[in-house]
Write a protein that binds this DNA or RNA. Structure first.
Lengths: 207, 207
DNA sequence: TAGATTGTTAATCGATTAACAATC
DNA sequence: TAGATTGTTAATCGATTAACAATC
């Protein structure tokens, strides 16, 4: 496999989810149907599926079950994926209890924080560990993804610690540009999202 | 103004934030310095700033205060921006208390939910209103941005209601493709982010 | 066969990067 | 002047879309 364009990879979860909205009485669907549900062009769907090696049948469409199976496999969701969340503030705790993660087979093995008042408690069944125990939590749990939900000042240090434990990927909610080698980092910048929306309030179409 | 490329708009919050990391003893900074902090190429910085009409001085750099002022204005953060959050679950409540929003001048005027047990309470000083009061909350508050933090099944209905109140933009945390006209929608898809990271666990560089 | 729909090519569009003349 | 750094052009790269021959 390999060398799937990033833009295509980013749409695979959308396609996988869109399959759930398909009428269940038919074995196949067309790229046009999938496109409607996903909110993209049908040519985009065909191109993306083709790029990841998924083929349909001309005149018929794509096999829904096959698509589901292969997309799940491509996204690595056919194995359990274990996740640790660093930062047990409001956001970290909300993420620990986020139904959407479990739904796709992600397991939150633990929260990590440096506040003694939080350590030892549990949030939605997830234990809160000391930051000094990060190594143990990640090592014991075969954790491959770390989520950073700390204040901005702590994020870089936490990222390096996560990297040192041998974690493979980081999802960063702190508004901090992380510098870590050999690790894939994705950033979710909540304030930026609002700011981008705010920009458009004054653009064309403003009151 | 107008017609700034979306990719450029999306980086303006990053530049604005990066200014805060600059040494405060100098009045100017170079595109190279800013690029380092923001984690992008210096040519990108120059191009972006040029595209939004911000100019530096050759051989000298950009005026830091001027940059901060103009970026703030461009992003519409020189006025208070009022926001309503629909959905007072874990995520909605975490967002209501999210420091990063207030920091940039966003005001959360209210949470909205349909759970009688939650209505009338407050979260981080933000009152929880009945969904049936959405109109009043948005209307009274001159709210321009709505955040959707509901379960997926409720998101489309909420989006339409928000549109009907005359809101201008929506930030959608529900894993739902929204169909609303004349409104800017941005999506933050937490499960997708993890799934994209999960995909790369098996790509090149996998153990 | 006729109708439907894929898979792929080529065209277009947009974003990034390199390079360098302009100029402080 | 010499050194630094912008602002912009052109080159490159990547993503999207249109179009249609292939084919079920």
């Amino acid at each position: 496999m390999a060398n799937i364009p990033p833009a295509t990879v980013a749409r695979l979860p959308l396609y996988l989810r869109s399959l759930a909205s398909l009428p269940s009485d038919r074995p196949t669907c067309s790229s046009e149907e999938l496109a409607q549900i996903a909110g993209v062009q049908s040519a985009q769907v065909r191109k993306d599926l083709s790029l990841v090696g998924l083929r349909g049948v001309r005149g018929v469409g794509y096999d829904i079950d096959g698509l589901r199976l292969q997309l799940t496999r491509l996204l690595g969701l056919d194995h359990e994926v274990r996740v640790v969340i660093v930062g047990a503030g409001n956001l970290g705790r909300a993420l620990a209890d986020f139904a959407g993660f479990r739904e796709w087979g992600f397991t939150i093995v633990g929260l990590v924080d440096n506040d003694p008042a939080k350590i030892g408690t549990t949030v939605a069944g997830v234990p809160v560990n000391a930051l000094s125990d990060l190594d143990r939590v990640v090592g014991d749990g075969e954790v491959s993804i770390g989520i950073i939900a700390t204040p901005p000042g702590a994020a870089q240090d936490v990222a390096q610690r996560l990297a040192d434990t041998g974690i493979r990927s980081i999802l960063n909610f702190a508004p901090t540009v992380l510098r870590v080698d050999g690790i894939e980092v994705r950033r979710v910048d909540l304030s930026s999202e609002l700011q981008i929306l705010a920009h458009h309030l004054h653009g064309p179409g403003a009151l």
